Computed example of a mutant assay.
Amino acid sequence: MLSEYVEEIETLGLYGFYVIIFLLIGLSIQDVLKRSNVPTFGRAIVWLVLFLGCAGFVSKGIIEVFWESNGLG
């Protein structure tokens, strides 16, 4: 039974790995911003860029799922 779902388990593991990597990147950026006394505007720009990168990655995954379910991929 487990061999039937190997591809799905691998996909979930990969997405979990990406979530952990994004979390660690966010924590390291937060630490660097605190230690270097970055102004509020600079912090907002950094977090905006990080959020847009994550949002782009998530939207890419959602688009791939829709395309594959419609037979386009």
Score class of each variant (00 low, 15 high):
I21P: 05
G16F: 01
I62P: 03
F57S: 15
L24E: 15
T11A: 12
S3Y: 07
L52Y: 10
G61R: 13
I21S: 10
L14E: 15
I29T: 09
F22R: 04
E8P: 02
A44V: 02
I9P: 00
I63H: 08
W47F: 06
L23Q: 12
I45M: 03
F57H: 13
L33R: 02
S69V: 05
S69L: 06
L27T: 10
G71T: 08
I21W: 09
E10T: 03
S59C: 12
G71C: 04
T40S: 03
P39S: 08
L50H: 06
I25T: 13
S59M: 14
F51M: 06
I9V: 03
S59V: 15
N37Y: 12
L14F: 11
G71L: 05
G53Y: 03
A44Q: 01
E68N: 10
Y18K: 11
F51N: 05
C54M: 15
Y5H: 01
W47S: 04
V6S: 02
L27D: 13
V49D: 07
G16N: 11
V46L: 04
A44I: 02
S59D: 12
E8H: 00
E64Q: 14
S59F: 13
G42T: 00
A44F: 01
L27S: 12
L52C: 09
L23F: 13
I63S: 14
F41S: 00
V32H: 05
L72E: 10
G16K: 08
G71N: 08
S3M: 05
R43F: 02
E8N: 00
I9K: 02
G73R: 08
L33V: 09
F66A: 15
N70V: 03
G16A: 08
G56L: 11
S36A: 04
W47E: 10
V6A: 05
A44W: 01
F41P: 01
L52M: 12
Y5T: 01
F66P: 06
L2G: 03
Q30L: 10
L2R: 03
D31T: 07
L52R: 09
G73M: 06
G42P: 01
F17R: 09
S3P: 03
N70F: 00
M1G: 06
S3K: 08
F57P: 09
T11K: 10
C54V: 14
G53S: 07
E10Y: 00
E68F: 09
G53I: 07
I9R: 00
S28A: 13
L14Y: 09
N70I: 02
R43I: 05
L72W: 15
S28L: 12
F57N: 14
V19E: 15
E10A: 03
F22Q: 05
E68P: 05
I9N: 02
T40K: 03
L52Q: 08
G71S: 06
M1C: 06
I21V: 15
I20R: 07
F41A: 00
I62R: 04
N70D: 02
L48G: 09
R43M: 06
E4K: 00
